[in-house]
Design a binder for these strands. Structure first.
Length: 350
DNA sequence: AATGCGGGGCA
DNA sequence: TGCCCAGCATT
């Protein structure tokens, strides 16, 4: 048996029963593919179920306000995926009369759909023979064929794209693609794979050379940036607060947050008042009282940034312009960091 | 060609 | 702690 036959045979007996399998309807396939970009199945699954329930069709998704889409996406990260998902739904609904493009090239035009996702949808839904190349595929191919080109550099990406096409099974492309990814996720795992139990064992170049632990090769990524965030949680006379939308570019674009002042380091208790104007919010200067909420900064780690976050309670004697009742602040799409604070402050303060 | 973009799980 | 995850858009 050659490579693709082993993958297909393995897939038939090991495939997980997931809700987007056993369908060729592009809507759930597309939704799952977007959600699973850089995201584990276990993390994306509940979001998929939630979205399918709220938006049974692409038309339902297109008709929703972006804020509602972001709220449902809250916690899944990489929020541009949600905004692009929504934009693509509008395109499909309004320009394509609710029908998905049925070719790789057509799918590629949709916002948020790149080479991987176009290959996945076109192969699974329309049997177009395009190989998917994701993190799983890089790992399996680099090991089985003993390729040590960096998978995150252009030359390596071109090489693996070509290799992937050469070894695919064009006749059963949908199952082959899903099988190869499933194989990477369950058998050819990143660390300490059980090569003794691998159906490809005999033909694996990495096993033969004793280099399983070295492959795939990845170029080091840039270090993380450290930032200091001071969130001002205004509480006015009528127990209302202020939430503003983050307009990009940058992290959490499209999500809401409390007035924010960034500083060069952790701000002492007697230093916060001088920073209030930095939030650019009228009325904060009239605060009777500004109290640090968390004694030590909350360290919120993102892939590319480490945030040291302090929340400050800003008591206002008057009435705040454009404020939202504290009882309703939970309905806004916010970063996990803000959601956690809202939950804590609700339990400990009010 | 390089960089930025979340959050969670695991050894 | 560092690495990885069904990648993409932007520069």
């Amino acid at each position: 048996m050659e490579f693709s036959d082993v993958i297909l045979a393995w897939y038939r007996t090991h495939k997980r029963d997931l809700p987007w399998r056993n369908t060729r309807d592009p809507y759930p396939i597309w939704l799952s593919e977007i959600m699973l970009q850089q995201t584990r199945v276990a993390q994306g699954l509940p979001y998929f179920l939630k979205f399918m329930e709220h938006f049974p069709t692409v038309g339902d998704l297109a008709a929703a306000p972006e804020e509602e889409v972001l709220k449902l996406w809250q916690g899944l990260g990489y929020y541009s995926r949600a905004r692009n998902l929504h934009a693509a739904a509008k395109t499909i609904s309004r320009e394509y009369e609710g029908n998905f493009p049925q070719t790789y090239e057509g799918l590629l035009k949709l916002k948020g759909v790149g080479a991987y996702t176009a290959a996945a949808i076109s192969s699974i839904c329309f049997q177009e023979p395009n190989p998917v190349v994701d993190g799983n595929v890089y790992r399996v191919l680099s090991r089985y064929f003993g390729v040590d080109l960096p998978v995150n550099a252009p030359e390596g990406m071109r090489y693996f794209a070509k290799l992937a096409r050469e070894v695919m099974d064009a006749e059963q492309i949908g199952d082959y693609n899903q099988g190869l990814m499933e194989f990477g996720a369950l058998q050819c795992v990143p660390r300490n794979p059980d090569c003794a139990a691998c159906p490809l064992g005999g033909g694996c170049e990495a096993v033969r050379q004793g280099r399983v632990g070295e492959l795939p090769v990845k170029l080091p990524k840039k270090g993380v940036r450290t930032r200091y965030f001071n969130y001002l949680f205004p509480v006015d006379r009528e127990f209302r607060t202020l939430l503003t939308r983050r307009n990009g570019p940058g992290i959490w674009e499209g999500l809401f947050e409390f007035p924010l002042v960034e500083s060069g380091g952790v701000v002492p208790e007697d230093g916060i008042r001088a920073l209030l104007p930095g939030a650019g919010i009228q009325g904060l200067g009239e605060a009777t009282d500004v109290v640090r909420f968390n004694p030590n900064p909350i360290i919120h780690k993102l892939s590319h940034q480490h945030l040291y976050v302090t929340f400050w309670i800003v008591h206002l004697p008057g009435s705040l312009e454009g404020a939202v009742p504290i009882s309703q602040m939970h309905s806004y799409p916010v970063p996990v960091l803000i959601a956690n604070f809202m939950e804590t402050v609700k339990n400990s303060y009010f």
